[in-house]
Amino acid sequence: MPAVDLIIDHEQRGGVSRRTFIKGVIATGAAVSSTAYLFRSSGVFAETLTQGAVERLITLNVNGQQRRVDVVPHETLAMTLRYKLGLTGTKLGCDRAECGACTVLIDGVNRYSCSTLTHTVRSQEITTIEGLEDSTGQLHPVQQAVVDEGGFQCAFCAPGFIMSMVALVEANPNPTRSETAHALSGNLCRCGDYNKILNSAMRAAEYARRRA
């Protein structure tokens, strides 16, 4: 699909005709579309959707609560959480499973919510950063560890990293620093605060062990 509909003529300008240009752009696969990352709502896909093939009003288990929500079939979990359920703690950093800012837990496993269709997690337990504190508002040991280490700089990546840390300490209460780095390697921090993030994660594991 060409990114932008262009009126094509055959005039030569600057040695490049527009037709040639567009062909070239398409051939190189570098067509610019501000929208290329979005799932399309038009075309054949949309036809089948409007025929009611998929139920739209669904129930999600988010942070221990049953949430009724209207979800279109191609909607990602990140968009549902952020724009339908008001859970903006989950961040969108890349829309494409490259940065991990959108990491949430699905049945305890850390996953990219930007690349998970909401409909696929209907029967699963979803935990976001907002769901980590206990009912009294006490911080989760991982959150407390980050606070005590002064972890993160801008912290846009923090919710995603923290969810990965939670998954790590549950799965491996005694991680080495190297295992910790591997467990967090699906998350990107552009402030480069990895040293402090690793310090936080090591302390998090210690707190989690103490609690257990």
Binding site: S34, T88, G89, L92, E130, E133, A155
Partner: peptide, 27 residues
């Protein structure tokens, strides 16, 4: 820092306003 680790820290895209609509760019 506590706001940052609990997801309560609001960055620009985290705000909503009544009647809010969305813009897209043509590049």
């Amino acid at each position: 820092l506590v706001a940052k680790v609990t997801g309560r820290a609001k960055f620009a895209e985290d705000f909503r306003a009544p009647g809010m609509v969305f813009a897209k760019l043509l590049l």
